[in-house]
Design a protein around this nucleic acid. Structure first.
Length: 203
DNA sequence: TGCCTGATTGCCT
DNA sequence: GGCAATCAGGCAA
C-alpha cells in the first residue's frame, strides 16, 4: 500500500531510516517499475552545509521548502537527475536522497531504459535508479501519495520480501565536499544493491 | 580490482 | 565563470 502523508511529516533522520525496505514505484505509459530502497541520505535544516537548502530558498530548491511527501528532483553534472523525498514540515527545507534500490518489478523495462542487462547495475546509484524507473524532471514537485511516482510500505511484496528485521548501517554521506563528517547516510547491511561509492575522508 | 578522467549544462555567486 | 548529493569506460597492476 502507498505510504500516506504522515509518514513524511516526521524527523528527517527517522524518515531516512524508515524508507529503507520500502518500495519506490512508477506507473508510466511504458509500464510499471518498482524497486526496494536500500540506501538513503538525510539533508537537514540548519547546520548542514551540504544541503541545497542551506543558503535559503532558490529557484532550484523551492520544492524542498514545500509540503512533505513530494518529489524533489534536481539536475546534476550536466546529465543526471537525483530523486529526493521532501520530509519534516513545510517551510523547513529538509529532504531524503534515495541513493540506491533493488529492482523488484518491471525488470525488462529497467534494462531497456538503462541499456544494461546486469540487474545489479540497474539502480545501485542515485542517477541510475532515476533512469531505471523512468523518473524525469517533470516529476519535480509531484505528490508521492497520488502518484504516478509513489512509495509503498515494506510489506508490499511479501513473497519476495517476507517481514524481517532490517539491519541499518550508518556512515557519512557520498559525493559532497561540505558537511562530510555528519553520519547521515543509511543503508541495509550486506545488501548487494547499495551504491559502490564510498564517503570521502575528512583528512 | 581499483583509480582516474571526461562528459555536459542549469543554476548560483 | 565555476561547479555540482554522478556514471561509465579506460588503463595500470
Amino acid at each position: 500500500m502507498i505510504l500516506t502523508a504522515h509518514f513524511y511529516h516526521k524527523n528527517t533522520i527517522t524518515v531516512a531510516k524508515q524508507l529503507l525496505g520500502t518500495f519506490l514505484a512508477h506507473d508510466s505509459p511504458q509500464g510499471r517499475t518498482a524497486a526496494r530502497i536500500v540506501e538513503t541520505e538525510a539533508y537537514l535544516y540548519g547546520d548542514d552545509p551540504a544541503s541545497h537548502a542551506h543558503r535559503g530558498m532558490t529557484k532550484r530548491n523551492a520544492v524542498m521548502f514545500g509540503p512533505p511527501g513530494r518529489a524533489y528532483i534536481y539536475f546534476i553534472y550536466g546529465m543526471y537527475y537525483c530523486f529526493n523525498v521532501v520530509t519534516s514540515r513545510e517551510g523547513r527545507g529538509e529532504a531524503v536522497l534515495i541513493r540506491a534500490a533493488q529492482p523488484v518489478e518491471g525488470l525488462s523495462l529497467m534494462q531497456e531504459r538503462r541499456r544494461r542487462t546486469a540487474v545489479k547495475d540497474l539502480s545501485n546509484g542515485p542517477g541510475k535508479l532515476v533512469i531505471a524507473l523512468g523518473i524525469a524532471a517533470h516529476h519535480n514537485g509531484s505528490c508521492l501519495i497520488t502518484g504516478p511516482v509513489t512509495i509503498l510500505s515494506r510489506d508490499s511484496y511479501p513473497e519476495k520480501f517476507p517481514s524481517k528485521r532490517l539491519v541499518v548501517q550508518v556512515t557519512t554521506r557520498i559525493g559532497i565536499s561540505d558537511g562530510i563528517d555528519l553520519p547521515l547516510r543509511f543503508y541495509l547491511k550486506d545488501n548487494e544493491f547499495v551504491s559502490n561509492a564510498r564517503p570521502k575522508s575528512s583528512n
